[in-house]
Design a protein around this nucleic acid. Structure first.
Ligand SMILES: [Mn+2]
Ligand SMILES: [Mn+2]
Ligand SMILES: [Zn+2]
Ligand SMILES: [Zn+2]
Lengths: 141, 141
DNA sequence: TTTCAGTTTGTAATCATTTCAATGTAACAC
DNA sequence: GTGTTACATTGAAATGATTACAAACTGAAA
């Protein structure tokens, strides 16, 4: 928990139990949950939690670049604790979002090009291999 | 208009005036409009047009891979007549969405890798150079 | 203590999208 | 041609994620 306290303090954001819980949740779950999932899971521990607090907290964490918003889904925003740059794969069958590590060599040019780029999002959509029945196992190299 | 008639026929989709107008609109506007924009613009010519028809049409065009849905905006879906693969830049200041041509060499590996990839989306977000006052002019190479 | 700014909470409003049922249309069978 | 049928269009209503708002809470500073 100290980890999250520090992040908040470093950014000059007031430390509150709700904020810590939400940060911890995002950091520990690699599932890229939406607000409803975060809310319903955390409400088990803290029944007084308000969904508005989840929205407010995600908004401030985002403002300070602590979390990232994924627009990969068409119906709701997904949240990701911000680590190093990576891309995402959305399984259109089961809805899972998986981290994808791709280092695109063209990225640096884009980042230094004529546009001032603040965010980079790489989204792939398709069917995950669990949903394909784990039949084909093809390497990625 | 023949162009759009052909595309519909090739795909076995019934030809209707509404569908043709929507296809033409998307093909001729590189603005990646949302449903509201398509609807309000086309309603000028055809006041009887229903927004549901716009939704329905975009849905079927999408199903046959004639248009592409962009989830780059957090509040509404944007639509793009589907040409060759390209990425997008969203200006967080003026809301414009600009086409970006990036040929990522890693893409093919991703496409043939362990996931069955149907869609590839590359989104960059930041401030466009119009909004930056056209001060810096930096090349992209 | 009192004050005060910021936080949390619950409710209400907003608004993009979906659902649904009625109406329209056009090809096709008779 | 007339009736049948499948599909398309339309407008209204429902849904659901997100935002706006105001009241209650908290905790540090005066
Ligand atoms: Mn991720
Ligand atoms: Mn485009
Ligand atoms: Zn899956
Ligand atoms: Zn701009």
């Amino acid at each position: 928990m100290k980890k999250y306290v520090n992040i908040l303090k470093e950014n000059g954001i007031k430390v509150t139990p709700q904020r810590l819980e939400i940060m911890k949740y995002l950091d520990e779950h690699m599932t890229h949950p939406d607000v409803e999932k975060i809310y319903s899971d955390l409400k088990k521990k803290n029944p007084a939690l308000s969904k508005t607090t989840v929205y407010n907290t995600l908004e401030i964490l985002r403002k300070y670049n602590i979390v990232q918003v994924l627009t990969i889904s068409e119906s709701e925003l997904r949240y990701d604790f911000k680590n190093t740059l990576h891309h995402h794969f959305l399984c259109k069958s089961c809805g899972k979002i998986i981290d994808i590590d791709v280092e695109c060599p063209k990225l640096n040019k884009m980042l230094k090009g004529k546009y001032k780029v603040d965010e980079v999002h790489g989204y792939f959509k398709g069917i995950c291999n669990v949903c394909r029945g784990k039949r084909k196992t093809v390497t990625n190299n």
